[in-house]
Design a protein around this nucleic acid. Structure first.
Lengths: 122, 122
DNA sequence: TCATCATATGAACAATTACTCATATGATAA
DNA sequence: TTATCATATGAGTAATTGTTCATATGATGA
């Protein structure tokens, strides 16, 4: 849904050849859309806390409820978001459902992001 | 604003020692909050497209306007979000303002995220 | 079977957000 | 100075989202 009614800068403002080069080198829209969706899922404190917990151990919903200090419904809703994004995986064990991280990339992303955040503070 | 009225599971449901261990090993809340904020900023397709463009070259707002096919106001608003998050940097050159990535961690994050997304497709 | 427990989910609501429109700012050129 | 151009920004709005409440599902044990 890209609007092509661009108000092009009058003359010397923009750099046509550079712009064309960059435009040609850009990743495809579907990839960028999925990438944004991935980051959006990571962009919530509750979900980050869930992932930081699951990074340390496989846990059932009830454990997470206790660790996060949130009610079960809220936790389950966020777990669904993470499951849909294939960031966490679940398996049943009796009455419980155990969750764990689905993908090593995710912990790498969290590690890298944490480094950035920590360095920025200094 | 953590609610401590947790409905603790009756008995054998949750694993107290494990839960305590994980709780103790969790990163501090401020770090997790900032991390979530960082990912939230990355979690928008327009901003991802801006970053993918700036990854390839320093560009003025007008260039970005052309590359993204969006109007100047929308681009400037998103650039502000990125500037506030210290993800991009700007410098004046005549009437133009040139933007570039502020931090190498960001391109690493985008690279890593892209890998994840691409592998997931297969 | 029925009761209970852990988890999942739909609806509703408040808060946030990305875009548009209009206008302001600040630099250059005449 | 005044006009013009590139960019920034405030207000308004539609869409999205995180939480809560109530309820459903599905497994276990009696």
């Amino acid at each position: 849904m890209i609007d092509h009614n661009i108000e092009e800068c009058s003359t010397a403002c923009f750099h046509p050849e550079l712009t064309a080069q960059v435009k040609a080198a850009m990743p495809g829209e579907p990839l960028q859309e999925e990438l944004a969706r991935l980051f959006k899922v990571l962009g919530d404190q509750t979900r980050i806390r869930i992932l930081n917990a699951l990074y340390r151990s496989e846990l059932c919903v009830c454990d997470l409820t206790s660790i996060l200090g949130m009610n079960q419904s809220a936790v389950s809703h966020q777990l669904r978001v993470l499951r849909d994004a294939k960031i966490v995986r679940s398996r049943k064990q009796g009455k419980n459902v155990l969750y764990s991280l689905d993908d090593s990339h995710i912990s790498d992303l969290i590690r890298l992001g944490s480094e950035h955040v920590q360095e920025e503070k200094g």
